[in-house]
Nucleic acid binder design. Structure first.
Lengths: 141, 141
DNA sequence: CTCCCAGATCAGAATTATTCCAATGTACTA
DNA sequence: TAGTACATTGGAATAATTCTGATCTGGGAG
């Protein structure tokens, strides 16, 4: 999914398209590569390049908004590094380096485990899941 | 594993057995049931019952120590609820309620996914992994 | 059993991440 | 093009965790 599609999707949901929101979305979509997932501060710095007076609060509020709209995901990796990514590139999980914090995307998902749990605990309403593998990347070993 | 075994294991590792440390370990082992995983504050309150002047810092330091010694695990659940559990009851994952924060233990593990990743990324040194399923428990729906 | 000191504890301050608030600004409808 | 509901701003508040420097103590040596 590209930036224009994402903006359209926001508009369809009746969300006001402010320049700050557009730029946060642009950073998530265009500045990220497969191994780079931004912290809120990194996103803030990048948005500041174009909108120097943007506040930290706006970044967080926008990220929460985008998450609610299904356009961003909040990643709670171990070691206190909460990161954000664009959610329009398909479901995946992460291989996370504990030294440099970079996360590579893994095109897999423990679906059988999920299915088993849902079958065995009908009383629990599943809404999501997380799966991360931790360790040290080649550079950091 | 019981409290005495855990204390012995600490001693073998040359760790000083202070009353505070013993009480933290006792809380983790004897006060927890399968659906209750304590926050640092909950552990602090419980240790205070016996050692009224214990500091918050001691709780955190002890939990880090126990984690390094393999006797505790830090659980980074989504929604900012970091919790701690005794690590002597076998490997497992968690079914986490996003409302009340309780976590039920799941006796399963996405092993095939781990094996696949290790086979496909020989350059990455895997040291651990996390798998949690989120949703709402019967009570909280 | 007592002494001793490396390492542990304590209280409170510092740090970090995130959210709240009240005043001000603005995207979008009509 | 104007009006207003919603968004942004900057600074302060909150919460979680860690640091610091003074004081205390578990447990080995004698």
């Amino acid at each position: 999914m590209k930036l224009d599609d994402a903006l359209l999707k926001l508009k369809e949901q009746g969300v006001r398209l402010t320049p700050q929101r557009q730029e946060v979305l642009r950073v998530l979509i265009e500045d990220a590569d497969k191994e780079e997932h931004f912290s809120a501060e990194e996103i803030w710095r990048r948005v500041q390049r174009r909108y120097a007076s943007v506040s930290f609060d706006t970044i967080y509020r926008t990220l929460r908004l985008l998450t609610r709209c299904g356009l961003a995901s909040e990643l709670d990796f171990s070691g206190g590094c909460r990161r954000f990514e664009f959610a329009g590139n398909g479901h995946h999980h992460h291989l996370v380096c504990l030294k440099c914090g970079r996360a590579e995307e893994l095109p897999l998902c423990p679906e059988e485990c999920l299915a088993r749990v849902q079958a065995e605990r009908p009383g629990f309403k599943v809404t999501g899941h997380a799966f991360e593998i931790y360790g040290y990347c080649q550079r950091c070993q």
